[in-house]
Design a protein around this nucleic acid. Structure first.
Length: 578
DNA sequence: CGTAGGACTTGGTCTGATGGGA
DNA sequence: TCCCATCAGACCAAGTCCTACG
C-alpha cells in the first residue's frame, strides 16, 4: 500500500496523556517487544477413585492419559454431537492412541463404554463451583487478576499493552462448526516445546516453565504476534496477539475504514465498470463482473477455495456452485429473480431471493449451461483473480472492502433516516439499534435464538396483556367519569375526567413502549448485532451520531468497545462523514 | 501461474458476572 | 435479599488475503 498513515495516538501512561507519532515505513511493526510468555493449561488431575468408568457394564480403571481423553468425552455427554457418527468415530480413533496396549485390547467398542458416572461427577463439580462461598469466589477472582497482571500485558515500543489471549488453549475434543469431517478429534495438549516465542533481542526474554524449553525464540519485528504454535487438527498456526485496544490493532482498524472511505470515492466508477463488463466478449470477465456485483450488492464474502474433506462444506461468492442458486424468470410479481441458498462461513445459511438486472440474469443462465449441480458457478474465477482485478481498480481494494464499505454507508444512511430530534434517548438508541440491525441483515449475521427467547417473549406478552387490561379499565373509568360529569356538570367531576384522561394517556404510552420493545426483540431473534458493530461499522459514524444527538457514548458502546474504539472517540466530531 | 504456508480479521457460542425487579 | 434475565468477555473456529516458492 502506498499510503502512509500517521495516526496521532493517545496513550495513557500512568494517567498522563501522551501524544505520540511514530510510524515505520519499512514494514516493521515494532522496535521493542517484551512479554512473559503464555500461561499453560493446568495439568490433568486424575479422577478420584470413586468416580468410575464402566466397560461392558464392569468398572475399569483407566491409565491417566486414556482417562484424561475419556473425561473430554464424558463432559460433553449432554451434547447432541456425542451421538453423531463422525464425532464418535474420530474420538474413538484418537482415544485409542492414548490407551495402553492392555486397554486397547480390552476396549474394542465405544458403544460399550459408559461415561455417565464421570459425567455426573463433572456436573456436580460445576454445581459446587456455583455454590461456592463469596470468599472462595473472591479468592479465585484475585488469582485470575494476579495472572492477568503478570501475563496479560506486554511492552511494545513505549507502551504497556493488553494481550488478547495469553492463555494457551487447553486440550479437548475438536468440535468445529457445521458438518465438520474432523469433529471429535483430540486437540492435544500444548507444551512449552511447541511454542515459538517472538520478542525483541534486547528485551527480557520470557522464561519457560522449570525443566522445559521453548521450541524457539525469535525476534521478528515484521509480525505482531508474541507467541505461536501449530495446532494438530488442521495443522494451522495459532497466535498470541494483542488486544483490540492496542495501538497496533487500532491503527490497523482505522486503516481499514480509510480504505473503505476511499472506495466510497470511486465506487460509482467501479460499478459502471462492472456493469459494462456484463457485456464483455470474454467469459472470464463476465463472470468476474457478475461475482463483483453480488459482492457489492449482497455483501457476500469473497469465497476462497477450501481443501475438500478437511473442513465443512461452505462457500462464498467465488466458490458458489450451480446447486446454490435457482433462477426464476418470473416469481410472483417480480422479474429475473435469483434465489440463493448456501452455507457460508461457520455453516450459517444464506437464503435470499432477489430480483437482478436482466443482463445479470442472462449471464447467470449462460454460466449454468451444461453444468452439473456440483460444478462451480464461476468456473473461470477465483478470489485471487478477482482481487488482482480490484487492486487495479483502486489501491488496496479487495473483496472484503465492499462489505466494510456497504456496512458503514448503510449505517450512516439509516441513522440519517431514522433519527429524530424530538425522540427521547431510549427512542434514539432504538433507532440506532434498528440501523445496526439493517447492517447485520445485510451481512447475514445470525445467531441461534437465545434459549430463553420464547419465555422472555411470553413474559413480555403477559406484561402487554396486563397493560391492555389496565387500559380498558382506565377507559371505562374515563367513560364513567364523563357520564358523571354530563350528569352533574360540576367542577369536581370535570377534574375527575381530566385525571382519568391523563391516566389513559399514560397507560397508552406505556403500552406503546412495551409493544415497541416486543417488536424490537422479535426482530432481533435471529440477528446478531455484535459482529457488525465490532468489525464493519466505522466507529466514527457512531461517535459522531452520539455527539450530534446528545446520546452518551456509553449507550452505544460498552467499556471494552470504548477501549477498542478509543481512536475514533478521540477523533470524530459531530459532523464526521464516512 | 498455482499452491502452501503464514498472518491477521471475522465469527458464533458458551459461561460466569451483574444488576434490576419481586 | 434473592432470583433470573441479560450482558460482557472468553473462547476458539473459520474466514480473507498476501507472499514465497517451485
Amino acid at each position: 500500500m502506498l499510503i502512509c498513515f500517521s495516526l496521532k495516538w493517545i496513550c495513557k501512561v500512568n494517567s498522563i496523556t501522551l501524544w505520540e507519532e511514530e510510524r515505520y515505513t519499512d514494514g516493521s511493526k515494532w522496535r521493542f517487544l517484551e512479554h512473559k510468555g503464555p500461561v499453560f493449561a493446568p495439568p490433568y488431575e486424575p479422577l478420584p477413585d470413586k468416580v468410575r468408568f464402566y466397560y461392558d457394564g464392569k468398572p475399569m480403571k483407566l491409565s491417566a492419559p486414556a482417562e484424561e481423553v475419556a473425561t473430554f468425552f464424558a463432559k460433553m455427554l449432554d451434547h447432541e454431537y456425542t451421538t453423531k457418527d463422525i464425532f464418535r468415530k474420530n474420538f474413538y480413533k484418537d482415544w485409542r492412541k492414548e490407551m495402553t496396549s492392555e486397554e486397547k485390547s480390552k476396549i474394542t467398542d465405544l458403544n460399550k463404554c459408559n461415561f455417565s458416572d464421570m459425567n455426573e461427577y463433572f456436573k456436580a463439580q460445576s454445581e459446587a463451583r456455583k455454590q461456592m462461598s463469596k470468599e472462595e469466589k473472591l479468592k479465585i477472582k484475585e488469582e485470575n487478576e494476579r495472572l492477568l497482571q503478570e501475563y496479560g500485558f506486554c511492552i511494545m515500543d513505549n507502551h504497556k499493552e493488553r494481550i488478547g489471549n495469553f492463555r494457551i488453549e487447553p486440550p479437548g475434543l475438536f468440535r468445529g462448526r457445521g458438518d465438520h469431517p474432523k469433529m471429535g478429534m483430540l486437540k492435544r495438549r500444548i507444551r512449552p516445546e511447541d511454542i515459538i516465542i517472538n520478542c525483541s533481542k534486547d528485551s527480557k526474554h520470557p522464561k519457560p516453565p522449570p525443566g522445559t524449553k521453548w521450541k524457539e525464540v525469535r525476534h521478528d519485528n515484521k509480525v505482531t504476534w508474541l507467541a505461536s504454535w501449530t495446532e494438530n487438527i488442521q495443522g494451522s498456526i495459532k497466535y498470541i496477539m494483542l488486544n483490540p485496544s492496542s495501538r497496533i490493532k487500532g491503527e490497523k482498524d482505522w486503516q481499514k475504514y480509510e480504505t473503505a472511505r476511499r472506495l466510497k470515492k470511486c465506487v460509482d466508477r467501479i460499478r459502471a465498470q462492472y456493469r459494462d463488463d456484463w457485456k464483455s466478449k470474454e467469459m472470464r470477465i463476465r463472470q468476474r463482473a457478475v461475482a463483483l456485483y453480488f459482492i457489492d450488492k449482497l455483501a457476500l464474502r469473497a469465497g476462497n477455495e477450501k481443501e475438500e474433506g478437511e473442513t465443512a462444506d461452505t462457500v462464498g461468492c467465488c466458490s458458489l456452485r450451480v446447486e446454490h442458486i435457482k433462477l426464476y424468470p418470473k416469481l410472483d410479481d417480480q422479474e429475473y429473480v435469483v434465489e440463493f441458498d448456501f452455507l457460508g462461513k461457520d455453516s450459517i445459511r444464506y437464503y435470499n431471493k432477489i430480483p437482478v438486472e436482466k443482463r445479470v440474469f442472462k449471464n447467470l443462465q449462460l454460466f449454468l449451461e451444461n453444468k452439473q449441480p456440483e460444478d462451480d458457478l464461476f468456473d473461470r474465477l477465483n478470489t485471487s483473480i478477482l482481487n488482482k482485478h480490484l487492486q487495479e481498480l483502486m489501491d488496496g481494494l479487495t473483496a472484503k472492502v465492499f462489505r466494510t464499505y456497504n456496512a458503514s454507508i448503510t449505517l450512516q444512511q439509516q441513522l440519517k433516516e431514522l433519527s429524530c430530534s424530538d425522540d427521547s434517548i431510549p427512542a434514539k438508541v432504538l433507532s440506532y439499534n434498528r440501523a445496526n440491525r439493517a447492517v447485520a441483515i445485510l451481512c447475514n449475521h445470525q445467531r441461534a435464538p437465545p434459549k430463553t427467547f420464547e419465555k422472555s417473549m411470553q413474559n413480555l406478552q403477559t406484561k402487554i396483556d396486563e397493560k391492555q387490561n389496565q387500559l380498558s379499565a382506565a377507559r371505562k373509568q374515563l367513560k364513567a367519569a364523563k357520564a358523571d360529569h354530563k350528569a352533574s356538570h360540576d367542577d369536581k367531576s370535570k377534574k375527575a375526567v381530566e385525571v382519568k384522561r391523563k391516566a389513559v394517556q399514560r397507560i397508552e404510552e406505556q403500552l406503546m413502549k412495551l409493544q415497541v420493545q416486543a417488536t424490537d426483540r422479535e426482530e432481533n431473534k435471529q440477528i446478531a448485532l455484535g459482529t457488525s458493530k465490532l468489525n464493519y461499522l466505522d466507529p466514527r459514524i457512531s461517535v459522531a451520531w452520539c455527539k450530534k444527538w446528545a446520546v452518551p457514548i456509553e449507550k452505544i458502546y460498552n467499556k471494552t468497545q470504548r477501549e477498542k474504539f478509543a481512536w475514533a472517540i478521540d477523533m470524530a466530531e459531530k459532523d464526521y462523514e464516512f
